[in-house]
Design a protein around this nucleic acid. Sequence first.
DNA 1: ACAAAAGTGTTATCAGTACACCCATGT
DNA 2: ACATGGGTGTACTGATAACACTTTTGT
Lengths: 238, 238
Amino acid sequence: MPQADEVQNDASTRLAVSTVIFALRPDHTGRPVLWTPLVRRTREPQLGLWALPGGWLPPNEELEAAAARTLRLTTDLAPKYLEQLYTFGEVDRSPGGRVVSVVYWALVQSDEAARAAVGPNVRWVPADTLPGLAFDHNRIVDYALWRLRTKVEYAEIAHAFLGETFTLAELREVYEAVLQRPLDPANFRRTLLASGTLRETGERLAGAPHRPPKLYRYDSSARTAEAREPFTRERPAS
Amino acid sequence: MPQADEVQNDASTRLAVSTVIFALRPDHTGRPVLWTPLVRRTREPQLGLWALPGGWLPPNEELEAAAARTLRLTTDLAPKYLEQLYTFGEVDRSPGGRVVSVVYWALVQSDEAARAAVGPNVRWVPADTLPGLAFDHNRIVDYALWRLRTKVEYAEIAHAFLGETFTLAELREVYEAVLQRPLDPANFRRTLLASGTLRETGERLAGAPHRPPKLYRYDSSARTAEAREPFTRERPAS
DNA sequence: ACAAAAGTGTTATCAGTACACCCATGT
DNA sequence: ACATGGGTGTACTGATAACACTTTTGT
């Protein structure tokens, strides 16, 4: 797409795709908080440091597919939500040659994430208290956290942390964990039901020593056209 | 930043930077509407078609600087607002080899845009009724329009179309042109003044056969921390 | 004086918030 | 029966919208 009089770029600039992955897990006190998987670098530069999952962009793979693939490779999970975050391209962000990284962010179902693949080179850490990461990856995760927190307030993405059906209390816990503040159960119920994006399943969750709550299912079809954004995927193809 | 076991991408994927530029100009009825400059392609592929200003990414130039440079090259203008829009990388979006384009969007001062450089290969067109562009550039402009229209509702960017000082009526006309609907002058006044981002200059605009309106200046320092977004530039360095 | 835009005042409506209170279940 | 979370009712508040009204200028 460049203008004709421009010189073509050479191979000295390389193109990578990375993904910031979020799931909810209990912290040491039992409260659910955001966790993210990291991979240990096994080569220079920055050998041994923890970094975001990612890799060079294969010539025949779509950007989003590359993000979903690295997600599957490191966690053995499929994302329930996947969206492009930003492209980082500062000239000096990587020692040893310029790297432009197209970064995606993903949400994965939290109970599946508990069974996610781990190993000596894959490790889950709380997203708010990261260790020092390779390259500019701390900054990238911070930005992804900012996007998640601002977006969960106006978009219906919290259900991506949950399974097919869920109670309103479970959904509220997701919001509380992401936004890091308590929400009024009564108002939360009304607001979400009024959004029209939840459908009753007709079932209830039994077993707890309390009144059994109704189970709901997310219904994406009920969203208005204005609320829909371009280039976002509910169920990304992996 | 890739994982060690990945294969490095080769030169078959090339990296470009393009910019969607917006300014306000009167349409045939005299009402201000959004216009955008296009450049004619002088090489294959898509020779002769109109396309977004852009070019290959030079190895030692920042992404944003490349966007500002192509903006200056095609219009001889400096952007008053410049922000990354999205990265387009579909495998088949360009015939003749894969191209990943990091796309920026920019706002330029409208009275300056009236004096912008034009020529046989540069042409301004109304952004809402584009001709058929090269590659996927129609889709890109549509997305940029969507971003501009949603962002102008919650962020203070409309002043970027105007000069240093402006009246509230001028600012309202910008909003009306971008949002394509009339706004109540009284409520607009109160809302904008309540935002705290406008400063009186003490001067008034005389000459019109009416009560002379006060002139205001935009004051970015008055924004709250939550309203500030990462990776956005008020006065980009070109 | 008068037309027209600048600028002010007033009220209605609606979304978000706080919180009191009733309901239904396992133990 | 009772503790506990599920679920409903209601009143308060602040932001937005609609629109009547007053002010100030050039002609």
